[in-house]
Write a protein that binds this DNA or RNA. Structure first.
Length: 413
RNA sequence: GCGAUCGUAGCUCAGUUGGUUAGAGCGCCGGUUUGUGGUACCGGAGGUCGCGGGUUCAAAUCCCGUCGGUCGCCCCA
C-alpha cells in the first residue's frame, strides 16, 4: 500500500487567503472605483500571446525577455508566452482589433502575470497587477491625467509616505545621444565599475545610473544628464507634464537617474517609491517600486503598426496589498444557530429568508449542540438567531445589536 | 543565475553535548459544568521531525544532496 503524495504548489505562486485576500480584494475594488472616476474603460486580455508580441515589444535583450519568460510550444508548434506584462498585449489588441477608431483610448485592467524569477518579498513568479493605459494621445495632458489617477488611487488606498519620482528620457534621438554619452563617460572608467555595471555598459548603460553598488555611485553623480540632450520639443513636453501635475495637485520630485528597464519607453518615465525610512519602505523590503510606467511612443511600430503615441502604468497588487494594512473579513449580519437537529428545517428556511432580504448570513448546525451558540457568539455576528427546543416547544432567541433585533424579527414574521 | 538563512502536529514553537514510546500552547472533535451566553474542567484525534542518501550500536539532532519557505544581489510591479 503506497501513500499518494500531495503535489506541491509551484514555486513563486501563492494561495492567497484570509486577511491577505481581503487586502488584495480591497486594492482591486479601489482600482475599479477610481478607474471609473477617470473614465477608463475596462478590458479583459488573454493570459498568453504569441512569443513575438513580447520579444518585439519589450526588446530581445531585456532580462524579462531573454531569461524570465514562461514560453512554450503549443500543439501546433507555435511559440507562446504567458504574459510577463500587460502593455504589449494591449498594444497588440489595439492594432489587431482596430481600436484606433476609439483613440484616444483609455483602458484599465488587472490580472495575473508571469515571470521566471527568484521569489522574495513582494516578488512572485505569478504575480498580479493593475494596469492603466492611454493609447493614441500625444499630448502631455494624457501623462498628467494618468498620473493624477495613480496618485488618487494611492491616496484612496490609504498609502502614505510614497512619492512620485519623475524623469524624461526624451524622444528617440535624445535618448540615443544620451545613451552614447553615457557609454563614453562610463567606458572611460570601466575598470573601476562593478562587474554588473561593466556588463550593463554593453547591454543597458542607462541602468548603471540606478546601480546600488558603491563603486558605481561615485561616478553616477557626475554622469551626463539627459537634460543636456533634450530637443526643444522634448523639453517643452516635459515642462507641460510637470506644470500639469502641479495644476492637478500631484506632488512629484525630479529623478534624473530614473530609467525604465524596457526598451519601448520615451519621454515621461515615472515610479512611485516609498520615502526612505517610511513604514511603506520597511514593508516592501528591497522591492521599492510600487507603481511604475511611462510613455511608449515607439511600441506600436515595433509590432508593425502605425506610429501611435501612448502612456501607461502598472502596479503590483501584492505590493500595494502589503501597504494597505490589515483588512479583516466582515462579520456576518446574522448567524442562524440550530441547537436541536429536529429544527433544521426551520433554520434553513430562516437562513434563506435572511439572505433574500440582503443580510449576509450563515448557519451553525453541526458539532456539539450545546456548543453551537457559543461558536456563534465567538464568530462575532451582528445578530444571532437561535433555534432550540424547550419543554417540547420551539424556542427562538434573538441576540442582536439594538436596531438589528427589530429588523431580524421583521424578516422572521 | 548568485549568496545567506530556515524546514518538528492545522497554527506558533520547545526538544540540553546524538541516547527509551517526540512535547506544550492555541485551534479542532467529544463529554461534563455554567446557563441569555465568548466560563471552567476532563478526554480524544492529529507527526514516516520536508524528501533522499551517508556517518554511528543509536540521528529530529552530525555530513552530503535535493525540494520548498524567507531575505538579499540581479531584474522588476
Amino acid at each position: 500500500m503506497s501513500k499518494t503524495k500531495t503535489p506541491q504548489a509551484i514555486r513563486g505562486t501563492q494561495d492567497i487567503f484570509g486577511p491577505d485576500a481581503e487586502a488584495f480584494a480591497f486594492v482591486v475594488e479601489t482600482f475599479e472605483r477610481v478607474r471609473k472616476l477617470y473614465r477608463f474603460r475596462r478590458v479583459e486580455m488573454p493570459v498568453f500571446e504569441k512569443t513575438e508580441v513580447f520579444s518585439r515589444a519589450i526588446g530581445e535583450t531585456t532580462d524579462v525577455v531573454s531569461k524570465e519568460m514562461y514560453s512554450f510550444e503549443d500543439r501546433g508548434q507555435e511559440s507562446l508566452t504567458l504574459r510577463p506584462e500587460f502593455t504589449a498585449g494591449i498594444a497588440r489588441a489595439f492594432l489587431t482589433n482596430g481600436w484606433q477608431q476609439h483613440a484616444p483610448l483609455k483602458v484599465g485592467t488587472h490580472g495575473p502575470l508571469f515571470r521566471y524569477e527568484r521569489p522574495q518579498k513582494g516578488r512572485y513568479r505569478q504575480f498580479h497587477q493593475i494596469d492603466a493605459e492611454i493609447i493614441g494621445a500625444a499630448e502631455p495632458q494624457a501623462d498628467v491625467e494618468l498620473l493624477a489617477m495613480a496618485d488618487q488611487l494611492l491616496k484612496e488606498l490609504g498609502i502614505e509616505g510614497v512619492t512620485l519620482h519623475l524623469n524624461t528620457l526624451g524622444d528617440g534621438d535624445s535618448r540615443e545621444a544620451w545613451r552614447a554619452a553615457l557609454i563614453e563617460y562610463f567606458g572611460a572608467v570601466r575598470d573601476e565599475l562593478s562587474e554588473d555595471s561593466q556588463e550593463r555598459l554593453e547591454k543597458n548603460p542607462l541602468r548603471i545610473l540606478d546601480s546600488k553598488d558603491r563603486r558605481d555611485r561615485k561616478f553616477v553623480a557626475d554622469a551626463p544628464k539627459i537634460d543636456a540632450f533634450l530637443s526643444d520639443e522634448a523639453t517643452a513636453f516635459f515642462d507641460a507634464v510637470t506644470s500639469g501635475l502641479d495644476a492637478a495637485g500631484v506632488k512629484w520630485t525630479r529623478a534624473e537617474s530614473l530609467v525604465r528597464g524596457l526598451d519601448y519607453y520615451r519621454h515621461t518615465a515615472f515610479e512611485f517609491i516609498p520615502d526612505e525610512g517610511s513604514a511603506a519602505a520597511d514593508a516592501l523590503g528591497s522591492q521599492s517600486t510600487i507603481l511604475g510606467g511611462g510613455r511608449y511612443d515607439g511600441l506600436m511600430e515595433s509590432l508593425g503598426g502605425a506610429p501611435t503615441p501612448a502612456v501607461g502604468w502598472a502596479a503590483g497588487i501584492e505590493r500595494l496589498a502589503m501597504l494597505v494594512g490589515e483588512k479583516g473579513e466582515a462579520a456576518a449580519d446574522a448567524i442562524v444557530v440550530v441547537e436541536d437537529d429536529s429544527l433544521m428545517t426551520e433554520g434553513v428556511r430562516t437562513l434563506g429568508k435572511l439572505r433574500a432580504e440582503g443580510f449576509s448570513a450563515e448557519m451553525i448546525a453541526s458539532g456539539s449542540p450545546r456548543k453551537r451558540f457559543d461558536k456563534a457568539v465567538k464568530a462575532g455576528a451582528r445578530a444571532i438567531v437561535g433555534f432550540s427546543m424547550q419543554d417540547g416547544a420551539t424556542n427562538v432567541r434573538i441576540k442582536a445589536e439594538h436596531d438589528m433585533t427589530a429588523r431580524i424579527e421583521a424578516v422572521l414574521n
